[in-house]
Computed example of a mutant assay.
Amino acid sequence: MRYGAAYLLAALSGSSPSAKDLEKILGSVGVDCDAALAKQVVDALSGKKVEDVVSEGLEKIGGLLSSGGGGVVAATSGGAAASAGGAAAAAPKAEEKAAEPEEESDDDMGFGLFD
């Protein structure tokens, strides 16, 4: 997704992006760029309008958006729904651990901020 996002960002400038453009954008935010993947994205998206690419993507995920994300679990088999229920039961345990107060650390070695 990062390569596609970098391509669309570069395409908004009005020119046809190259793999070097993607590398420059990704490098500016500290992300390593695989030249082969960048070239693959450039080859796949070159000549397409940004608006067309975005609308195609929205059509592909339209089912997820219209169902609110909940329809995916309902459409799966019973075993998957049961495992999802097990995951929901495990969630309160994680909340209990998060609610416990943390012990104070002795990192200050006896010196306070205002001593």
Score class of each variant (00 low, 15 high):
M1F: 10
R2W: 09
G4V: 01
G4H: 04
G4T: 05
A5P: 00
A6R: 02
A6Y: 06
A6Q: 06
Y7K: 05
L8C: 10
L8D: 05
L9I: 15
A10V: 04
A11Q: 12
L12Y: 04
S13W: 08
S13M: 10
G14R: 03
G14I: 04
S15G: 14
P17S: 04
P17N: 05
P17D: 07
P17C: 05
S18C: 02
K20Y: 02
D21A: 11
L22I: 04
E23A: 12
K24E: 13
I25E: 15
L26A: 10
G27V: 07
V31S: 06
V31H: 08
V31M: 10
C33Q: 02
D34I: 00
A35T: 12
A35I: 11
A36K: 15
L37N: 07
L37C: 03
A38Y: 03
K39E: 15
K39P: 05
Q40D: 05
V42H: 01
V42W: 00
D43P: 01
L45M: 03
S46N: 01
S46R: 03
G47W: 06
G47Y: 05
G47N: 04
K48L: 05
K48Y: 04
K48V: 01
K48Q: 11
E51G: 05
D52N: 10
V53G: 00
V54T: 00
V54D: 00
S55D: 12
S55Y: 06
S55A: 12
G57Y: 04
L58I: 04
K60T: 00
K60I: 01
G63V: 00
L64M: 01
S67K: 02
S67N: 15
G68Q: 12
G68A: 13
G68T: 12
G69D: 02
G69S: 05
G70H: 12
G70S: 14
G71Y: 01
G71P: 04
G71D: 14
V73A: 09
V73I: 15
T76V: 09
T76R: 14
S77I: 05
G78D: 14
A81Q: 15
S83L: 15
S83E: 14
A84Y: 10
G85P: 03
G85L: 13
G86Y: 07
G86K: 12
G86V: 11
G86N: 15
G86A: 14
A89P: 02
A89Y: 13
A90W: 05
A90E: 13
A91T: 07
A91Y: 11
P92T: 05
P92I: 07
K93E: 15
E96V: 11
A98Y: 08
A98T: 08
P101C: 02
P101W: 03
E103A: 15
E103Q: 11
E104K: 15
E104G: 10
E104D: 13
S105V: 10
D106S: 14
D106W: 12
D108Y: 12
F111G: 09
G112M: 06
G112P: 01
L113F: 11
F114R: 04
D115G: 12
D115A: 12
D115V: 09
